[in-house]
Amino acid sequence: MGVDVNEKLFHEFCSSGINILCAGKVDDPGCIFRNHLPILCRQSEALYRICLALQVLVSPCRSDQFFEYFDTALKRFRLELDGTGTAQLADGTFTAGLLLCTIGMTRGTPWTMHLQGLYNVLLASGLAPLRWQPTPIRAHLLEVLGIMDLPMLTIGRKQPAFGVWKRYCRDRSDPDGIEVVSGLPKTLLDLFSSIDECVVTEEDFWNWPGARGSLMEYQLWEAYRSAGMLNIRYPDVLLPLCAQPSRCMDEQPPRVRKPHTPSTEILVARILSNIDSICRVSAGEEGQKNLVLNATQYPVLVAGLQTEIVNGDPELKRVIQTCLSINTRRAEANRRLYRILEEWWQADGKAHSAANIHEIAEKQGMELGLF
């Protein structure tokens, strides 16, 4: 791992590997993380080493070197954490912890224990005051932490959620705006952050007013809006058991269609129609400049969980398979997600009243992030 080799890897990460982390435009000038990465790496050698490990991971020709780079990065990260004590965690080390979780998500290996550890360190150094006057980069990092913590965006989750988004990200000076990692409007993330508390209804998603964006972003947001409605309608299927309070199940029984909202069949069709459009554009030259495809895993999974509908329409299954196969940036994670869906489909509804999608992931030793 010579200096020249490392610098070449870091340059590759800054120019291409970093695209695995975002769901906006490749050249988005508003991407705070992309703009601040060199500065953050000067703050934290652990971050620099983790960037190298992530670039090796996403480079097929270097995959045999991954563990060598990863072990070095992990040791350096632990040293930085030990040196923090009760002081405020530096933004560079904070970023390193988030990318450590990303490595786990990309590999399909357990990663929420890293999220738990990072959250505990932030709490120990005084996380609550930072919600009021954060710097732009700190606000961005808190939002990324909040997205990683959302229960419905992780399959096979080992650690319970902490409620980061609703505690630290909802009271913001700018009520609107797009979160660059998920590619979603922050007002839509506000709705998703409270699904597990049963204070958000299907009608809230149905009445969500939208936000300003590109045509591809509109298609993504419409897919998420429909997926959010299905997530509420079938909480026993998608939400982890630790995110299903008994009062929630009592107050809103699953599989009950609310008045004036579309049927499940129509919601599935809407999700996959929008995803199909995103896939078609992404396959073209213009689509390569846009990273919206990175954000499609969650709505694809939610639609795919409707076994009877998907098994009954080969075209819907084709869209799911296409979406999870054409994104080369997240190829390995998407292959794992498709294997989970295939096992779910093969059950053909026989055990779905008792089975949860998380049980399949746990059986396969996976912990997948859907962002």
Rank of each mutant, 00 (worst) to 15 (best):
190 D>L: 02
124 A>K: 12
109 T>A: 14
88 Q>Y: 04
135 T>H: 01
117 G>P: 05
112 T>I: 04
201 T>H: 14
100 L>G: 11
83 G>S: 07
101 C>P: 00
110 P>C: 15
83 G>I: 09
187 T>I: 10
147 I>T: 05
93 T>H: 02
160 P>I: 07
150 L>I: 10
122 L>N: 04
150 L>N: 09
101 C>A: 09
173 S>E: 00
96 A>F: 13
151 P>F: 12
204 D>F: 00
200 V>N: 15
105 M>S: 14
108 G>W: 15
192 F>L: 12
98 L>I: 12
138 R>P: 08
121 V>S: 12
173 S>Q: 00
92 G>K: 05
103 I>D: 03
123 L>P: 04
199 V>Q: 06
153 L>H: 10
147 I>V: 15
196 D>C: 11
123 L>G: 13
131 R>N: 01
161 A>G: 10
113 M>H: 15
117 G>R: 14
201 T>N: 05
183 G>W: 09
191 L>T: 13
189 L>D: 02
101 C>K: 01
184 L>H: 03
138 R>D: 00
159 Q>H: 15
155 I>S: 08
94 F>E: 03
182 S>R: 02
198 C>K: 06
116 Q>F: 10
166 K>F: 05
126 G>T: 06
165 W>R: 02
114 H>K: 04
127 L>W: 03
127 L>M: 07
178 I>H: 02
172 R>L: 00
132 W>T: 09
173 S>M: 02
188 L>R: 01
173 S>H: 02
181 V>L: 04
170 R>I: 02
151 P>Y: 08
159 Q>S: 15
150 L>G: 03
198 C>A: 14
156 G>H: 13
154 T>N: 04
185 P>C: 03
114 H>Y: 09
174 D>G: 03
191 L>G: 15
99 L>Q: 13
168 Y>G: 04
164 V>H: 05
94 F>A: 03
202 E>C: 13
141 L>N: 08
167 R>P: 00
98 L>G: 06
179 E>K: 09
202 E>N: 09
92 G>A: 00
192 F>N: 08
203 E>H: 11
152 M>H: 11
100 L>F: 11
184 L>V: 05
162 F>K: 11
197 E>Y: 07
199 V>C: 12
104 G>S: 13
